[in-house]
């Protein structure tokens, strides 16, 4: 097993854990943490592919990872703001209770 493969297995594992968290957790904040894990798994991929790829001097993978870290931060900020808005109305962050819209 090459080093790249072990990185890819680790990132696939991280992604799966994040997805499982996002799908099974009932608390909106824990779902948000799951999403962040998934994004970070992709970042790990970018770095691994950059480091072991044919053109490590091009820095594309690093750039992509940096941008996605920035985007993930913005996403967390917006997400927490929306969770606070929900909390104001429902007095809970439990997604099972947030079910006014249906159909």
């Amino acid at each position: 097993m090459t080093t790249l493969q072990s990185y890819l297995i680790l990132s696939a594992l991280l992604f799966s854990i994040g997805l499982a968290g996002a799908l099974t957790r009932r608390n909106a904040i824990l779902v948000l943490i799951g999403i962040e894990l998934m994004l970070n798994a992709a970042n790990l991929n970018f770095i691994a592919f950059w480091r072991y790829g044919p053109h490590p001097e091009a820095l594309t993978g690093v750039m992509f990872a940096l941008f996605s870290i920035g985007v993930a931060a913005a996403e967390a900020a917006v997400g927490l703001a929306l969770i606070i808005a929900i909390y104001r109305h429902y007095k809970t962050a439990n997604l099972d209770k947030v079910t006014t819209l249906k159909g």
């Binding site: 909106a28 998934m38 985007v71 996403e75 929900i86 947030v98 819209l101």
Partner: peptide
């Protein structure tokens, strides 16, 4: 607020 949160959570997973 509910619509925003649902849009965000689906969108976040899709973006990931």
């Amino acid at each position: 607020a509910e619509a925003g949160l649902k849009y965000f959570l689906f969108g976040g997973v899709a973006a990931a």
